[in-house]
Amino acid sequence: MNEEDKKLSIKQKSRRIFLGRSLTAAGAAIAGPSMIQASQEYTDQESAMASSATGETTLQLNINGQSQTLSIEPRVTLLDALRETLGLTGSKKGCDHGQCGACTVLIDNQRVYSCLLLAVMQDGKTIATIEGLANGDNLHPVQTAFIDNDGFQCGYCTPGQICASVALLDEVNNGAVSYVTPDLNSTPQLASLSETEIKERLSGNLCRCSAYNGIVAAVQQVTGQTPLSPAN
């Protein structure tokens, strides 16, 4: 375990340990026996959780260019590992059932729903989240296009929408077809990608504010097309 990993592992457990110790200290200082007993039970619960953690597995992920090692139960989803264990809260939990797209991240450059993936199965993979798209203070062109075209309102679905749009560009460049592609033997080009194609290809990301016109315009801008102004 390297220094960075130790810090992560400490960060996960430190709050519970702190709470347990504070209760014990407070009990010893000011309370009678019953409260000391209560604090003892709390500490026992802590050790029970620690023993169930024998089911934890250690895995290594490359997230936004950084190698991360984490220990988690097999049932932890990639989304929960990102948000709760690693503190990367950019990927959002919307439905948690693969129906809304707010948790979309890129694994080995392919867009996926992190809420339906077990983190343990991603061992060794390369993951990009919304936090990793910008280059320092320079936004990714898709991020800029979302701002330019009002591609959001409340912003909750936006990290997923942007990750999905980044992948969409790659997919079209690689010749991927969609359900609405008129001729499956003739692959669409980004410069002439129709609005119908963009909507179909982004249908896995819902926007409760219905900022869809702005989202489509943002994608059109990145493909080099001239989007309609939002007022139209």
Binding site: G101, V177, Y179, L184
Partner: peptide, 28 residues
């Protein structure tokens, strides 16, 4: 769904797969 021969020889299969779920789910 994107395999060249499937698109050419069995387009109903490509189109059926592409009609299902979303791109994220089809990738997984």
């Amino acid at each position: 769904a994107n395999h060249t021969e499937v698109r050419r020889q069995y387009p109903m299969l490509s189109r059926a797969i592409l009609s299902g779920a979303s791109q994220q789910i089809r990738n997984m």
